[in-house]
């Protein structure tokens, strides 16, 4: 099955990004496909490479980058939400890209399931 994932909250304050990541990883391990993850609302903060969490904690952004590198997951950050919050190409972590909301709608149209993580 192809899963699209929507992440609506930023890292650390909220569980959404952690749960979305664990869901995506588990789905891939079970043989499903996660072609794309879309970051919206404060979820765009997950894409910042400027975050430097303590070394004894998980690095939420870097973890997404690695998942993308290992499994070809397309990490898309909403341009309008990103501009509101100062997330630009200059601060993007590896394998994130900025694009439009159309990329979210496409997930709904093309994939078997669209799963939302947020409040």
């Amino acid at each position: 099955m192809q899963f699209g994932i929507l992440v609506n909250e930023g890292p650390y304050t909220h569980q959404a990004s952690d749960t979305a990541y664990l869901f995506a990883r588990a789905a891939i391990e079970k043989g499903h496909k996660v072609p794309r993850v879309f970051f919206y609302h404060d979820g765009v903060y997950n894409a910042s490479r400027l975050a430097t969490p303590p070394q004894d904690d998980r690095n939420v952004g870097a973890r997404w980058s690695k998942l993308a590198a290992d499994h070809g997951v397309d990490l898309v950050v909403c341009v309008a939400a990103a501009q509101r919050r100062g997330i630009t190409d200059g601060v993007l972590g590896d394998n994130f890209r900025i694009s439009g909301l159309g990329q979210l709608v496409e997930m709904g149209i093309q994939y078997d399931r669209l799963v939302t993580f947020g409040d």
Binding site: Y40, G100, L101, L104, G108, I109
Partner: peptide, 11 residues
């Protein structure tokens, strides 16, 4: 915003 874009995709 998402609603308007989805409508623009003729959904």
């Amino acid at each position: 915003e998402v609603v308007l874009i989805t409508a623009a995709f003729d959904q």
